[in-house]
Nucleic acid binder design. Structure first.
Lengths: 231, 231
DNA sequence: TATCATAAATGATAAATATCATAAATGTGG
DNA sequence: CCACATTTATGATATTTATCATTTATGATA
């Protein structure tokens, strides 16, 4: 279902004003010429652990998850990313092969640029290089901060985190359709699927949220935030 | 006890052949001129969360820990780093203020270079910039990988990890003096101090290690590795 | 729409881990 | 070298979390 498309140009892309804002028009054109744009349906694999790193990827639209398969075959989700979360970036400069798998969680549009072109532009354009480092640094900080705050909290705090994460970071609404299963939430915040379900039910009984299948409505954001902060 | 010293020059420093290998001799001289070199005794604070980020720091000798104080006043250790682990790097490009505290765990020598100079060199020297990105990326990957593999393991696996970490990564010997307390180990691998002690005792009873106060000897590396890998 | 697979839900139980209490060992300042 | 604080150590207990078993709901497909 992966399908090459070409709907946009770099000039009016969100990335223009973000990762690529320091490029000259000419350099941006180079990107635009070399890039390929793909549509992925929900649930498709964008790349797999072990694939050779040849492209710089960025998510133009949609939602993806970054995961790692452990030795015991269990999948662990490192993060869920929306456009501008710059997620294809993890490890592309440090290894020859991807160490994580990326899968779409909603229908998505992803652009690919030759990594060699990005490297060339980093070498050529110092402002771009520095800006790139700053952006990269933010992404990593955020991942580390999140992992840390999850690992130091207990179950209710983690569920509160994930509910707020989708509401505030991903959708910007207190009412949304969960894009992932309870099992995937469990894989993301390190707990058993049963306990994800159980604690969601508790929150429902306590009138903090409403659940209708995948639809979540948060009624008491402040209380959720307290649960998150107290751990 | 922090004390300015000047024992070395950049030319024969380990960093020369590492982070700064892509600099020209002239650029390296700029670093050498601007840098300050400090001795810190064991247990001193190098910088604190909230301090303004103005310097690029690197550890020339010794051992440091990177930690974060949580809202409930508990300290959480993110990582322990030796020279070349490049640890001062986390977050210096992404925020104005340090989000972690760095404390020495052994007597250490740390160099400071104006961050503005590093940024200038990144802009000027594309090869340096790209190399820098690659090094940074490795550091981040490693931190994320470590946090992940700790959080998915249970207590005995985590203790096995930390014992192997000191033996293989820090000291390169199966016999070493633990540079940190049991409590600090607990803060590093997310468990209670009592359980750190308890499991070390178990490992001793099982003849995997010998403990004499801070002195650890690993007798059965393979078994430790299995415990680590099986979680 | 009937059928099958998968996800969600809940209770009961087991396992893992933290906390509390207490004691011995070690280190530290006077 | 002593008093005091901190670290290490261990047992008992409480809490948290995972696992197992079972049921219900939901979604996909022929």
């Amino acid at each position: 279902m992966k399908e090459e498309i070409r709907q946009t140009s770099c000039e009016n892309c969100v990335y223009r004003s973000w990762a690529f804002e320091k490029l000259t028009n000419e350099q941006l054109k180079e990107i635009d010429n070399s890039r390929k744009e793909y549509f992925y349906g929900k649930g498709e694999v964008v790349y797999r652990e072990g694939d050779k790193v040849e492209k710089f990827l960025y998510l133009q639209k949609g939602l993806v998850k970054l995961l790692k398969t452990e030795k015991n075959e269990k999948e662990h989700i490192i993060s869920i990313a929306k456009p501008l979360d710059f997620i294809g970036l993890l490890s592309i400069f440090s290894t020859q092969q991807y160490i994580y798998t990326i899968t779409t969680v909603e229908d998505s549009i992803i652009c690919e640029v030759d990594l060699s072109l990005i490297k060339k532009l980093i070498k050529e354009n110092g402002d771009f290089a520095l800006d790139f480092i700053e952006k990269m640094s933010k992404v990593f900080d955020d991942v580390i901060h999140t992992r840390l705050s999850i690992s130091t909290k207990q179950l209710r705090g983690r569920i509160a985190y994930i509910l707020l994460f989708f509401a505030e970071h991903i959708y910007g609404h207190n009412e949304y359709e969960l894009p992932v299963s309870r099992k995937e939430i469990a894989q993301l915040i390190d707990m058993s699927t049963e306990n994800v379900i159980r604690i969601l039910s508790e929150f429902r009984k306590d009138n903090i949220i409403t659940i209708e299948g995948k639809n979540i409505t948060i009624h008491d954001t402040e209380r959720l935030r307290r649960i998150y902060e107290l751990g």
